[in-house]
Amino acid sequence: MVIYGVYIVSKSGGLIFNHDHNVPKIEVEKSFNFPLNIKLNYENKKVVVAFGQKDGIHVGHILTAVNGNAITGRELEDGRDILEMLEQPENFPITLKFSRAKMTTNEKIFLASMFYPLFAIASQLSPEPRCSGIEILEADTFRLYCFQTLTGIKFMIVAEPSQPGMEILLKRVYDLYADYALKNPFYALEMPIRCELFETNLQTLLETVEKSGISNV
């Protein structure tokens, strides 16, 4: 029973709130000898595992540290290039730390605004008039539940496929939004929600649902 995150998209399609709830952190640290038996690629300012999946290191994971030192982009703190370093036998044995890629805020904003036209296309494609748009989007590892209010705001929850009661939870999140964001006189409509009360109440709600199910909220 895991809820991965909650997102709110405004009427005009901008991400105004996101909350990562319970994303399991995956980190693997392992020592390697020359030559390195996994292929690394540099893309989108990250060093990514391209091929050679083993010992919990999966294709798509990103390199986060070398010999315990964190890396930024493809460089170590002292400016040495990692990919060049891994070509040279004298740097081995070497300890590399991999983790699952985390979405940056920019990527989240980007994805949220991608969902917006998808939702619109879905309601246009519908064979029946007055279609509601996408309500559930299902994949093998998650389900995305979307609830659009009459005023055009979209509430989204990403959760495990087996998690029940998410439609009801969306309505509860809407309640919280109506109370703690809109009744806050210092919250400007359509702007990102930075209301602490909203966040703490949401956190409590999500925890209760995960622990004791939707019937108790």
Partner: peptide
Amino acid sequence: GIRLIEDFLARTGSGR
């Protein structure tokens, strides 16, 4: 009004 409507909709769950 532009804020109160959300409270009304969230509370009553009324449709269009």
